[in-house]
């Protein structure tokens, strides 16, 4: 399969890149390209302009600043498990990066790009010819969702591996827009609408990920269940962050909903309590209630429900052992 025609530009600065996004309604940012280019070959994304930001300096860094760890959006995933600062301070982020796709994805793919990846759906991630057998769906510019066979919204799923661990660490992201920038919580980056999964303003580009200092000294882990030991997107992924001192335990999931989710109900049950076998069993049963599971992949919702429960159980037990 081949790429559609597009204009290719290399902006010299973030400001210039933001202007291109503002001026060209169907322009897209190209970083690692591991998600975008595959989608372009399928013609589910057909940008008129590709603005390659990889030549812009200053977006590829990892540093600690006033306690917080700040990571440039263009940092390749591979560097997250090759950099001592990350492997020592946030080992869970390193192992999450090592679980993404294949080595090639980790080399080409960037942290910012991974967070901003498109939602996935078995009716969407297909070739143009394949999709022509059905009415165009929301995500491909049509007016129906084949997953639920309804004309409401797009039910594609967010399947990124990096979001869950950053969510439980209450990470923030910096969005630049021309000369300006704003910092928002990672959670609020995601819209919950499969068609436009990112809640950003026109012209905004994610430039930086910030992990607050308070997240660094507690146990956290990301656990992914996929079809094979390499290459695949998660069927379900779960992250937890657990602080014994604060008696606070945070839980998130990916590949179970239209956005990566924080399991707020489970978190409130766990709040103020020490982890124990009984509590783990108590909350494991609540796992699937946190997500709106639909058949957007070839894996049944009932199976994902079992996996959510299983992953929550095993990650919480790991937290018990480790903290």
């Amino acid at each position: 399969m081949r790429l559609p025609k597009f204009e290719y530009v290399e902006p010299k600065s973030i400001e210039e890149a933001c202007s291109i996004l503002s001026d060209e309604s169907s322009a897209k940012i190209l970083a690692g390209g591991t998600d975008l280019l595959a989608n372009m070959k399928h013609r589910v994304e057909v940008p008129s302009v590709l603005a390659n930001i990889k030549r812009i300096s200053g977006l590829d860094f990892i540093r600690q600043d006033n306690g917080a760890i700040r990571i440039g959006a263009l940092t390749p995933l591979k560097r997250l498990y090759k950099t001592t600062l990350v492997t020592e301070k946030v080992p869970a982020l390193s192992s999450a990066a090592a679980s993404v796709g294949s080595y090639h994805h980790q080399t080409m793919g960037t942290l910012g790009g991974n967070l901003c990846q498109q939602n996935r759906c078995k009716y969407f991630n297909q070739s143009q010819w394949w999709r022509s057998a059905r009415e165009p769906c929301f995500k491909a510019g049509g007016g129906i969702c084949h997953v639920v066979n309804k004309k409401e919204i797009c039910y594609s799923s967010y399947c990124g591996d990096m979001a869950p661990i950053l969510l439980v660490m209450n990470a923030k992201v910096v969005l630049a827009n021309k000369g300006d920038s704003r910092e928002i919580s990672l959670q609020s980056l995601f819209s919950g609408d499969g068609k436009t999964p990112l809640d950003t303003k026109k012209g905004e580009i994610l430039t930086e990920i910030v992990i607050p200092e308070e997240a660094l000294n507690s146990f956290s882990t990301y656990s992914k269940f996929a079809n094979r030991e390499s290459i695949d997107f998660p069927i379900v992924g779960a992250a937890i962050w657990s602080s014994v001192q604060r008696k606070e335990h945070r839980v998130s999931f990916t590949a179970v909903d239209r956005k990566p989710i924080r399991a707020r109900n489970i978190e409130s049950v766990l709040k103020g309590r020490d982890l124990s076998e009984e509590i783990v069993e108590e909350v494991a049963g609540l796992a699937s209630k946190e997500a709106a599971l639909v058949k957007s992949s070839n894996y049944a919702p009932s199976y994902k429900r079992r996996l959510m429960e299983g992953l929550l159980r095993s990650t919480l037990k790991e937290a018990m052992r480790r903290s």
Binding site: K122, N125, Q126, W130, A133, R134, N227, R228, E229, S230, I231, D232, N298
Partner: peptide, 26 residues
């Protein structure tokens, strides 16, 4: 691992990614 999944005559997993052969890791 393998199964050519068909929905109303349409193959749902016609790619190496979605079909999911075992790899060297398996």
């Amino acid at each position: 691992y393998e199964d050519v999944i068909v929905e109303k005559g349409q193959v749902m997993n016609p790619s190496f990614l979605d079909y999911g052969f075992p790899t060297a890791m398996e």
